[in-house]
Design a protein around this nucleic acid. Structure first.
Lengths: 337, 337
DNA sequence: ATGAAAGCGCTAACAT
DNA sequence: ATGTTAGCGCTTTCAT
């Protein structure tokens, strides 16, 4: 049946410890013995049983990742980043989808512990102190990623949302827009990144002497953006709004779809700016002007952080802040007229 | 420290075997002993070490999944299907991305074996007999999914592509199109599903007495569809083509983008049909008329198949064929005339 | 019904 | 430099 370290030892005529030593390069082994072991491994096609290994070393080279929904493209991008960097260091990914359920998140965290994962990355869209405190206690290296909520007390990787919003507003103003609306999330504003984005928006509107006009959307999906189009389009027209800054790409795209379906042209009649730069943003027409949240990098940096901790390095900052970028594309133009 | 079965046994004043029996419900245990064990487990917050378990049982409840690129939305959908069904039976997912590299696919398959996964699902976009024969030999239950190539000799889940193409052509013809072009893949046509799709296309064109007009595209990305727009648009116009049937949604979307960027209206000037129904298809404007490949279901059925084998059930068919559906949306209309 | 003990495949002291 | 041995935490005979 499956070949074990014993078989290798027997064939190479050494003890299993010697075999172990050459596999792990953990102690000096005479060239001769090493040669024989290597030969035996080759001939038998021996592959160490990772499970047995994990049992004794009490750790696997598996990183657990709990995501909200792998179907979201930003989540997939984060996973790519995690996967690719992890792979470089021979770490594998154990994937769980919580679909936004608090209890699932916690249960998966426990499950991953049972599986002796080396570290955990959570991509969450809700606020869930239960996992956070569980993870804190368990003393396993982890990173908590949350696109919406400000996470302050846990290791995380994010961008400076205030700065990002400033970039959007500066661009809009420089393009000549004065009547700019902002579409924000209605839920938990004070706890989310919307707080900072709204601040930036309000400040800029103050500076250019315009009235802030804030609309609230409920949900993060393209459909939700479409719905809000339905609810606000009349106000937009009445108030002669020339640009709508949406808190998320999905909302922006939904809104543009609504406008498209009602013969309002983007950007000719109204400019729309998004936030996130999801995959769709550049395939969609008109191509979306938006803030690039570097999802891939967020994933890559997250696992790097965990790997560092695993190697015993001290990681100072709780939050690692990545640079933001405004991607100017076609959904935004100077106001006609 | 971490609490083990010994701790539970001590607290419950039974042997570890009894604890094991309670945990696994493997043998009768007296009500009294069971009660005490349960209580101890509760109080200590004991969670069995899955790694130790796997070592002795020689199998984990982990399903390995090797995908081409988790960034593709169809891949993400398949994974969702696998994940959700797997979860119902307490299986976890170990994820590897091969990025289309043959050797990676093989290496990952070996790696997954080392980790004692219970089964393997491969989502491949290339032809790789090395993994296939490795998997065959290893006698681990697996499913080989390939969107492009006909896989005949390995367990797989797919749709009837011939039938799907018939549906597209019937729809196009019923809408009144006579001058229909088909965009196919240029690579390995004889080995891929394009063979059957082309057959259907040619047969229908023969039936309505039209000239088949086939264009070849190289690649599966939206950009590739855009490129081909550049290459064929003049022919399309010359030949008064009223509908283009593209072998993949990505190609269709790229083509529509090209047409959009060059002021050719879809569907008013030209109808475009895709194949796949990727997530983008319904968010894109015009919404794409396309064949729905049920990715989620493909994933779900794949893991069900593996689970069946794991439970010792015989699974007769190598290939499980799922029903197809034509999704009629907006990118296709009757030819204006 | 329960416990003692062997052993899964490996690593890591400890001896030599 | 190499071998012997004791576990890692669990399941599973085999006795009782």
């Amino acid at each position: 049946m499956t070949v074990t370290i014993k078989d290798v030892a027997r064939m190479a005529e050494v003890s299993i410890s010697t075999v172990s030593r050459v596999i792990n390069d953990s102690k000096p082994v005479s060239p001769e013995a090493r040669r024989r072991v290597l030969k035996a491994i080759e001939e038998l096609g021996y592959k160490p049983n990772e499970v047995a290994r994990s049992l004794v070393t009490k750790k696997s080279n598996i990183i657990g990742i709990i995501v909200d929904d792998i179907g979201s493209s930003y989540v997939a991008q984060i996973i790519r980043g995690v996967e690719e960097v992890g792979r470089m260091y021979n770490y594998d990914l154990l994937l769980c989808s919580s679909y936004g359920d608090k209890e699932s998140e916690l249960r998966f965290a426990q499950l991953l512990m049972q599986k002796q994962v080396a570290g955990i990355i959570i991509v969450s869209e809700i606020l869930n102190n239960d996992v956070l405190s569980f993870l804190d206690m368990s003393r396993i290296p982890f990173v908590y990623l949350n696109k919406y909520y400000n996470v302050l007390e846990s290791p995380n990787v994010s961008i400076n949302n205030r700065e990002a919003s400033d970039k959007v507003m500066r661009h809009l103003v420089e393009e000549g827009h004065k009547r700019i609306a902002y579409v924000t999330q209605e839920k938990d504003v004070e706890l989310t990144i919307e707080k900072h984005k709204l601040e930036a928006y309000r400040e800029w509107m103050g500076n250019i002497g315009g009235d802030p006009m804030v609309f609230e959307v409920d949900g993060h999906k393209i459909e939700d953006g479409y719905d809000i189009g339905n609810r606000i389009v009349e106000r937009l027209l009445e108030e002669k709004i020339t640009a709508v800054y949406c808190c998320e790409d999905e909302i922006a795209i939904g809104l543009i779809n609504y406008l498209y379906d009602h013969n309002i042209k983007v950007p000719e009649d109204i400019s729309v700016v998004g936030y996130g730069d999801i995959t769709l943003a550049s395939y969609f027409r008109p191509m979306l002007t938006t803030i690039k949240e570097p999802y891939y990098d967020i994933g890559a940096v997250s696992i790097r952080r965990i790997l560092k901790v695993l190697q015993g390095e001290k990681v100072e900052e709780q939050t690692i802040v990545l640079p933001v970028q405004l991607i100017v594309r076609d959904s935004c133009a100077s106001p006609s007229k």
